[in-house]
Every structure is written in structure tokens, then in C-alpha cells.
Design a protein around this nucleic acid. Sequence first.
DNA 1: CATGAATGAGACTTCATTCAT
DNA 2: AATGAATGAAGTCTCATTCAT
Lengths: 230, 230, 230, 230
Amino acid sequence: MNLASAVPQRRAPAGPKAEQRVRDILRVGREVFAERGYERATTTEIAQRLSISEATVFTYFRGKRELCMRVIQDWYDEIIAAIEADLPRQASVREQLEFIVLTHLRLFLIQGTGLCALVLSEGRTKGQDLGEGFVELQRRYTVPLMELLARGQEAGEVRRDIPLRLLRSLVFGPMEHMLWEVVITGRQIDVEASARDLVALLWPALQAPDQELQRLRQLRAQLQLVLAQA
Amino acid sequence: MNLASAVPQRRAPAGPKAEQRVRDILRVGREVFAERGYERATTTEIAQRLSISEATVFTYFRGKRELCMRVIQDWYDEIIAAIEADLPRQASVREQLEFIVLTHLRLFLIQGTGLCALVLSEGRTKGQDLGEGFVELQRRYTVPLMELLARGQEAGEVRRDIPLRLLRSLVFGPMEHMLWEVVITGRQIDVEASARDLVALLWPALQAPDQELQRLRQLRAQLQLVLAQA
Amino acid sequence: MNLASAVPQRRAPAGPKAEQRVRDILRVGREVFAERGYERATTTEIAQRLSISEATVFTYFRGKRELCMRVIQDWYDEIIAAIEADLPRQASVREQLEFIVLTHLRLFLIQGTGLCALVLSEGRTKGQDLGEGFVELQRRYTVPLMELLARGQEAGEVRRDIPLRLLRSLVFGPMEHMLWEVVITGRQIDVEASARDLVALLWPALQAPDQELQRLRQLRAQLQLVLAQA
Amino acid sequence: MNLASAVPQRRAPAGPKAEQRVRDILRVGREVFAERGYERATTTEIAQRLSISEATVFTYFRGKRELCMRVIQDWYDEIIAAIEADLPRQASVREQLEFIVLTHLRLFLIQGTGLCALVLSEGRTKGQDLGEGFVELQRRYTVPLMELLARGQEAGEVRRDIPLRLLRSLVFGPMEHMLWEVVITGRQIDVEASARDLVALLWPALQAPDQELQRLRQLRAQLQLVLAQA
DNA sequence: CATGAATGAGACTTCATTCAT
DNA sequence: AATGAATGAAGTCTCATTCAT
């Protein structure tokens, strides 16, 4: 394959009307991919919901795969933006953590369960159509939390003896698991209460190991020693 | 009025050779579904890897969906069996928890990452082909952990003020999240160390809150009292 | 709970070219279904005869069954239209009957023997794929004859003591039987002569029982009585 | 193709057990073909209803087609036998005709509607699997009626100016049409009454045309002449 | 003789994608 | 810029039939 003589791809149209089209397709594409997953989503359905021709979709996106990637990208950007916009940076690390968890849960549950599933599903199968850019997207998505945790470590509020990655899993893991339960069972939950509960559960694990407890343990040990010798 | 009595399906053969065939197809089916996910897996590929005709696959399984369900079921059964067989019931709840986590991680990472993804993916998309039996399978899969946590609660080692479901999410959540990181990034991890770390992180959150701390505080207070009187 | 909203079917195109395509497919579909019957007809063959892709067939018709139903419907419509257009309403009931029989025979023999067989066959097997709309189609097909017979009854030219349904069988039955003989044996027949012969045969059976004959019979009986007494 | 070196076909087994097998398969085959029609009948179903292996069916019959032909043949033989056994040869032609019609209707409706449909359907499609022997079977099936009509003609009770074939259509046609109505609509009918009605309708058409009427007219004319002269 | 087991051939159907207009 | 129309490629599934045991 002579890359220099690569077939020239038709460029997507430009202009203000075109931008609106792109936004429309992305919006509906998000709906459909969210509802059906990558494989079961069809370009037909996307086009029909917009009352446009299927061919038009391909005028603006090189193919199904590219469209789906853009959908996910946009969604990530929104979440990141939402968090960065309203994160109460003056509040305590714990409160900021609560905010992040709550915001995630909210965005997921309000409109994103399907997208969440999409990302999780498609990111995890070999031979997938979606593939290359995934790891990078995944990384960006956790940036706000990572930064918060880093700040927490610097401030001494979050333990330093555990790698950030592991702490991140400690937060996102239960969160996503909760979300799945919602998706699977269809049971409704109280988002804010759940966020609060979750952080309450997690916080002790994230904190620097309790100094008071350490000292008391030492004390007990010494006493036991003394008493044993008595 | 459906006067046409149901057309009878050809029964799957039942001899000893047949059992071997079923096992073969389930084995390879597991591989393919694991690698590709439900939609991207093809009966063609399964048959080819076994060097048998596609028709043979359909001789033993009514269809793709049934085969996939059986694959998942079998996998769940293996995991449950593995845990129940070797669970150190005499050991502490914490040690048993470590065993469960370790066993899960191991089975997932050794041969099951893809299946894990399969289950998680397919269970989470609307309009899926796999559908009805899924929630039930999901439930069976967490039985050993649920029982352990229940025993822990009875023994006073696990807090009672949080619903079991939430505690389950607290365990499975981070576990699965770790697994996904592995799948996505392809990075290898030290399974045993990870299991230990994870439980170390989780344990404080699962324990009866501050019981130890409460008792130590009492001890200190009494000692102080005694010393003051001495 | 079927949460998955129905997956939308691709609509058939609707332009002027599309109409031509639909007509082409219906035309060839008619041929193939006529020649082979429902089960033995294949979408492959229909596509091949038109030198188009099989997929194109499915662009215009949801599936084999729908196509076949449309084929039959169209054919019925043609027959009904042909009869209604040229039926000599001013002529005697008998002449109109002859016209209907002749028209049927003609349309059947010229291009429709196979379709006739198709309809008769598929309408008569349990567990058929074609099913729901069949009885209704069947009914529409006999409307012109039924109306004629009803008019004949009102005019006193057709006997009233036999249910219309039975009279209808009396007409269609032999007609179809003749047609089958043609199909089976392949023997050619003189359509017009056959129509004339058939109606000649049928007419006495349809007519109001002959009054002259009745009266004559009475006369004879009385005479015989008288002579016997003489 | 060198016919001389034709692959020797495995012969069907012989012996009393084998004959029973053949009868069983024919019996069930009749059921299945009758219920489903040729294409939709499966060797699987036939074998399953007998709790035997599919392969066994092929031990006794060369294939689906041969089995079906034998099924039809047997059925025809039964009907012919039933008619020939009980035909009241001493009774009038009309009574014999009534007997034949009644017997047909009965055998069809009791167990044979499906077979009737099978024969009619499969006999009428080109490219059919069943094919060669059909015309011959069809001929044998109408032998009793044909003979009766011939005798009727000789006896002067049935008109001679119409070909026998047409008269046969006149009888079988309405009969079959009635049967179809039953099959299609599922409506039950009074077999004996229907047979009587049908023959009542047909008889005038079969009779020598107006012979009676001719003679009566002559009689009246002569009487009038005599009376006028008196 | 009966059958367990396997399969070739082919059916219908779906869908992303292209291209002339 | 938009789309009507067409299709290649692929997928799931069915079934009559064969053959070694």
C-alpha cells in the first residue's frame, strides 16, 4: 500500500449549517448508541430519527465507528466540563469528592446509563471496531478525580502509601457497580443519598491511616507486654 | 388461532461422544464469545476453530443465544464451585474474603477476562439478545460472597448498618474495575498482591465502624482512671 | 418487560424509479411464485431473473412472505378489475355468468395457472407462512360472482332455495378442476368453448327449477291416473 | 453418466418386522404430510413421532419424495378400495353417484383434508419434487367415478354428448371446492346432507338433456291433437 | 438392522457503505 | 449539500441425506 497515493477521502462539509447537522447527528447518535450498544445501533435508526437520509450521515462522518467515537468523546467532554465548572474548590477534599461522585452518578443516571454501558462494553472486547483512541479517552475521563486525589495527597488528607491508580479504582469501581445494578435491575435509587453513603464508606479507606488508632494500638501492645511480664 | 402444532425441534444427541462434542463446543464457544463479545462472535468462527461444520454446532445447541447462555452458565458454575470447594471456612471472615477476591481475580485473569466483559456488556444493553435469564445468573454468581458477608454480620465482624447489596458493590465494584484496567491497558498485575491490597483497603470500610476504636478508647479511659487512682 | 423500543424497519423507497422497481419485482415474483409455489420459490431466483441483488428485493419488501402476499393481492385486484370493467351488465344473468367464467379461465390460463395453484395450495395447508390475510383475500376474489348470483336471485333467474355459498362452489369448483387438469396434464383447451360448455352444464342447476317441467310432470301424473281408472 | 455403472442403491429390508416398520412410517408420514404439506413436513418430525431415528426412515424409503409418493398412493388405494367394496351396484346410477360423493367427502373430512390439499397442491406446481407419477395416480383415483359414468351413459341415464372428462370435472370440482371451504374456513358441515344436496344439484346437469322434457312435450302435443280431434 | 453423528447446500435476512444525480 | 437507490458481504439457521459402527 502506497500511503502517499491514498485515496482522498471526501471531506465533511463545513459551514454553520453543517455544524448544526453534525450536532444533530451526534445528539441522536448518542441516543441510539446509548440505547442499543455499538453493534445493535444502526445508521438506519439514527437517520430515521432525524428524518434524514442514511447517506447524509455518511456525508458528515466517515462511518459508524467514527461517529460512535465522536459521540463518546463529546460525552466525556461534557462530564469533565460539568465537573470542572462547578467543583467547589474551596471546600474540603471530602466535599469535593462527594461532588464528583454525585455529578457522575447524576449524569450517568439522567441520560447516560446507556453510554456508560457502551463505553464499558466496547472498551473491553478484542477485535472491537472501536479501539485505538479508547485508552486515551478513558484517561481523560478520570482526570478531575485524579487531580483531586493528588491535591488530597499533597494536603495530607489522602494517604500517600497507595498508588493513585488504585485509589481511583476504589472510587470508580463501586460507583460503576452501583450504576450497573441500576441498569440491570431497573431499580430506582436516591442519587444524593447513594453518593453520600458511598463517600462515607470510601472516605476512611482513602484517608491517611488513623494516627490516633495507630498510637492506641501501640499503647495496647506495650501494656500487654508489661502485663504479661508482671 | 395457531392450529399448527409446534414444529418439533431436533433433539441434541445424547451419547458419550455427544457429551464430548458439547464440551468442545462450549470450550471454544467460551473462547470466541470471550474474545469478541456476543454480537461479534460468529457461529462460523466457533465451527472453524473446531474444524467442524457449522451445522454441527446447531445440532447441539438450538442457536447462538442458547449457546452463549450455556457458556456463561458454565463459567459461573465453575467459579462458584471453585470458591465453595476451597473456601477456608475455619479462617477469619477477612481471610475468607481475601480468598474469594483472589479466586475471582485469578479465574478472571487466567481465562475469563473476556467472559467477564461479555457478561458485563450484554447484561447492560437494552434490546439485547441475551435477556431473560441474565439477572438470575448474575444473582447466583454473587452468592458465595453474599453468604460470607451475612456470616460476617452475624459474627459481628461486618457492619450491620449497611445493606448487603451495597457491601457487595463495595467488593465487586473495585474488583471489576481493576479487571477492566487490565483488559483495557493490557498491563499485567500481581494477582495476589492486588487481592491483598484490595482487601486491606476494603476491610476497614466493611468492619463494624470503630468497634476496635471504641474498645480501645474505653481501655485507655479505664487505665487512665486506674493510674490516676494509683 | 420489553424495554427495547421496536427497532425501526428501513422504509421502502418511494420515488418514481422505486415504483418501477416494485412493479418489476412484483412481476417477476409473480412468475416465480407461480412456477414454484411459496416454499420452493426463492428470493435468490427472483433477484437473479431481474439481474439485481437479493438485497434490493428486501429494500422494497419486508420479506418473502410480504412479497408473496402482495403478489397474490395484485393478481386478485387485476382479475376483479378486469371483470368489473367489462362485465356486460345489460346482458342476461346467464351471459354475465359466461363472461365471468370465461374471464377467469382466460386470466388463469394465460398467465395465472401457477398463481391459482399457489393460492389454492398455500391457503390449504396448516402451519403455512402465509396465513392471516388469506381468507379475506379469498373472499374479495369471489365478490363479482357473488354479486351476480345475488342479482340473479333477485331477478328470479337463479334459484333461491340454495345458499349462495353452495352456488358459488358449484361455479368455482368445476372451473378450478378444469384448470388443474390443464396444469397437470399440460393439455391445451379451447377456452371459449370450455367456458360455454361449463355454463351450459351449470345453468340448469342454477336456474329456478323449471316450471314448465313441473307442470308437465303433474299433467302426466294426472293423465296416468285417469287412464288407470278408465 | 454411465447408467450401467449406476451406484447400487441399498435395498429396503424385507421380512415381517420390516413390513410393520414400513406401515408405521407410512401411517405417520401420512399424518405429517397431511398436516404440513410436502415442503413443511420434515423427516425429523416423522421420525420423532415414531420415536425412531431419522436414519431409519431412510433405511426403508429412498428419500422424502419416495415416502410421500407412497403415502399418497396408499391413500388412493384405500379410497378406491372403500368405494369398490361397498358401491351398491344394484342401485340406480344416481344412488351410486351419491354413494361415491358421500364416501369421498367422508374419507376426506375424517382424515384426509390435509392429504387432499397435499395432492392438489403438490400436483400443481412446476419444478416440484413430486412429479412423474402424479398424473397416473390422479387417473387411478377417478376410476370408480369414470366407470360409473360410463355405465350411466350406456344405460342412457347419463348424457352422451359431453366428454367423460368434463363430466368428471363437474363432479369432482364442486366436491373439492366444498372441501376447501371446510379446510379454509374451518367450518364444520353435515357430510351426508352436503352429499345429497350436491348430487341433487348435479344430477340434472348429468342427465341426458331434456330427454324427459322432450318426451313430455311430445306427449302433450299428441294429447292436444287427440283432444282437438275429439 | 438401527442409529448416532455429521454435514453440504442453501435459505432468508441485515446493514454499513457507495455513488450518481 | 442531500439523497434515492443499490449492493457486497456476512450472518444465523434448517434439513435431507450419508455413513461408520
